[in-house]
Simulated assay, not measured.
Amino acid sequence: MLTVYTTAPSSHSLTGHEFRQRAVDVARWTEAAGHRGLLVYTDNTLVDSWAAAQLMIEHTETLVPLVAVQPLFRHPFDVARAISSIGYLHGRQVDLNLVTGGFAGHMRELGDVLDHDERYDRLAEYGKIVNKLLTGARPVTHLGRHYGLNSASLTIPLPAELTPSIYVSGSSDACAQAQQTLGAVRLSYPRAAADYAEDPDGLRGNGIRLGIIARESSAEAWRIAHERFPSDELGERLHDVAAGQVESRWHQNLSRDAQNSHSPRDGYWLYPFRAYKTFCPYLVGSYQEVARLLGEYLDLGITALILDVPKDEDDLHHSDIALRLAQRMPTAV
């Protein structure tokens, strides 16, 4: 079964009023489309992800925010308390996307000196504590490398049916180890499906994030794609500068692909990422063409799909046509 989320808008370049309206609109479109929820980003420069999730919960009925959680921002007890509080106040579920932080400069700002793999060790410890606090029947005592708790418990317990689904983001071996430790679903930004020919199980059981521009004809889809993401030399230069400051393996790999490929690969398009307009690849084409590409990822065993921020509600209508076609396609042998 495939779980589908969209992505909440960024607060960059928006006033508070503009962000509130945009976030509520995207949340309502996502709910109306029947998707589970939407990813809420976090980094040093964005509005707090929990404040954004609270806003969207208050303006929807069933939406499940997939909240990005960075260990440097909140203690694991505080995250568990936030989840149980949302359950108590709204009877609503919140999913978690555990992230380590990708930009080296952001880590330095917060005094973090751990290397890439150590941050995933901390992430795994963090996730285990949150899970124990939310699901354990007894107070939690934990003496670990990064955190310590002494008979800590939530005074507002979380109903079992509101237990969050847990995701971890990354593509490195350290991320895969954290995923295994937590029993989580790993999220990545996929390369073209054909690139997994030598590693056919590389995405199995995992989730991917990408954008979709699908229309009746391929020509119409590409017209919209180029209007939405025109050639942008400044954006390309900004991307190259940013790529030199990240430690995320997925970002490094995708940046190399984007710099080496200036044309779409059979509907798989990296230019929006290359031009620093978004952080994921796009699938572009007719409904049938995009459905075929999506079907290749489904054949690789993905269990979750996170769509890029929709420009308008109609975007989700068109992407859903392609997605429904893909799910009806016969599985490849």
Rank of each mutant, 00 (worst) to 15 (best):
residue 200 P to S: 04
residue 200 P to L: 02
residue 200 P to V: 05
residue 201 D to G: 01
residue 202 G to A: 08
residue 202 G to D: 01
residue 203 L to V: 05
residue 203 L to R: 00
residue 203 L to D: 06
residue 203 L to C: 05
residue 203 L to T: 00
residue 204 R to T: 01
residue 204 R to E: 02
residue 205 G to R: 03
residue 205 G to H: 02
residue 207 G to T: 03
residue 207 G to C: 03
residue 208 I to E: 01
residue 208 I to L: 02
residue 208 I to N: 02
residue 208 I to S: 00
residue 209 R to Q: 11
residue 209 R to L: 04
residue 209 R to V: 06
residue 210 L to T: 03
residue 210 L to P: 00
residue 211 G to V: 03
residue 212 I to L: 12
residue 212 I to S: 07
residue 213 I to G: 03
residue 213 I to Q: 00
residue 214 A to D: 01
residue 215 R to T: 05
residue 217 S to P: 03
residue 217 S to R: 12
residue 217 S to V: 04
residue 218 S to H: 12
residue 218 S to Q: 11
residue 219 A to D: 13
residue 219 A to T: 07
residue 221 A to V: 05
residue 222 W to M: 01
residue 222 W to A: 02
residue 222 W to N: 03
residue 222 W to P: 03
residue 222 W to Q: 04
residue 224 I to L: 14
residue 224 I to H: 04
residue 224 I to S: 06
residue 225 A to G: 04
residue 225 A to N: 02
residue 226 H to D: 08
residue 226 H to R: 10
residue 227 E to F: 04
residue 227 E to T: 10
residue 227 E to P: 01
residue 227 E to M: 08
residue 228 R to L: 08
residue 228 R to G: 04
residue 228 R to Y: 00
residue 228 R to H: 05
residue 229 F to C: 05
residue 230 P to R: 07
residue 231 S to K: 11
residue 231 S to A: 13
residue 232 D to M: 10
residue 232 D to S: 10
residue 233 E to L: 13
residue 234 L to E: 15
residue 235 G to S: 10
residue 235 G to Y: 06
residue 235 G to A: 11
residue 236 E to C: 07
residue 236 E to A: 13
residue 236 E to V: 14
residue 236 E to D: 12
residue 238 L to Y: 09
residue 238 L to F: 11
residue 240 D to N: 13
residue 240 D to A: 14
residue 240 D to P: 02
residue 241 V to L: 14
residue 241 V to S: 10
residue 241 V to N: 11
residue 242 A to C: 05
residue 243 A to I: 06
residue 244 G to I: 08
residue 244 G to N: 12
residue 245 Q to K: 13
residue 246 V to R: 15
residue 247 E to W: 07
residue 247 E to D: 14
residue 248 S to V: 12
residue 248 S to A: 15
residue 248 S to G: 10
residue 249 R to V: 14
residue 249 R to I: 11
residue 250 W to L: 00
residue 251 H to C: 09
residue 251 H to R: 11
residue 252 Q to G: 13
residue 253 N to C: 08
residue 254 L to K: 04
residue 255 S to E: 08
residue 255 S to M: 06
residue 256 R to N: 09
residue 257 D to V: 07
residue 258 A to K: 03
residue 258 A to Q: 05
residue 258 A to S: 10
residue 258 A to W: 03
residue 259 Q to S: 09
residue 259 Q to E: 07
residue 260 N to Y: 02
residue 260 N to T: 11
residue 261 S to W: 07
residue 261 S to V: 07
residue 261 S to R: 13
residue 262 H to S: 15
residue 262 H to M: 10
residue 262 H to K: 15
residue 262 H to L: 15
residue 263 S to W: 08
residue 264 P to A: 13
residue 265 R to S: 10
residue 266 D to S: 14
residue 266 D to P: 00
residue 266 D to K: 09
residue 267 G to W: 00
residue 267 G to R: 06
residue 267 G to M: 09
residue 269 W to C: 05
residue 269 W to Q: 06
residue 269 W to P: 02
residue 272 P to T: 12
residue 272 P to G: 11
residue 272 P to L: 11
residue 272 P to R: 11
residue 273 F to V: 06
residue 273 F to R: 02
residue 275 A to T: 14
residue 276 Y to M: 13
residue 277 K to A: 15
residue 277 K to E: 14
residue 277 K to I: 02
residue 278 T to F: 07
residue 279 F to N: 14
residue 280 C to W: 15
residue 280 C to Y: 15
